[in-house]
């Protein structure tokens, strides 16, 4: 991380918590693309988001399994069997 960016981050962290969240939200809105924001949201919500997509019918469980592939599903069983 660049020195300036680190310094700016420190400055943001110095904002009292009650105002910090609003500042971060505003900063993200102005300086982050919506696409990147969505990517971070997926990463943070992980299974919750996929489950929501399945529940709302935007993707079927079969589509997800197809995307994951048979080999990795078998690998998953192998991992589970070694754990138990």
């Amino acid at each position: 991380m660049k020195y300036e960016v680190k310094e700016a981050l420190n400055e943001i962290m110095d904002i009292p918590p009650i105002y910090r969240r609003d500042y971060i939200v505003r900063y993200l809105r102005e300086n982050l693309s919506e696409r990147d924001a969505r990517r971070y949201l997926f990463e943070k919500t992980k299974v919750h988001f996929i489950r929501k997509m399945m529940d709302e019918g935007f993707i079927s469980p079969l589509d997800i399994l197809e995307k994951i592939g048979k080999d990795r599903v078998c690998q998953f069983f192998h991992i589970k069997s070694t754990q138990s």
Partner: peptide, 13 residues
């Protein structure tokens, strides 16, 4: 740099 800071904020904070 603003983008980099925004990414750090989005990913960590």
């Amino acid at each position: 740099d603003k983008t980099e800071l925004a990414e750090v904020l989005a990913s960590e904070y």
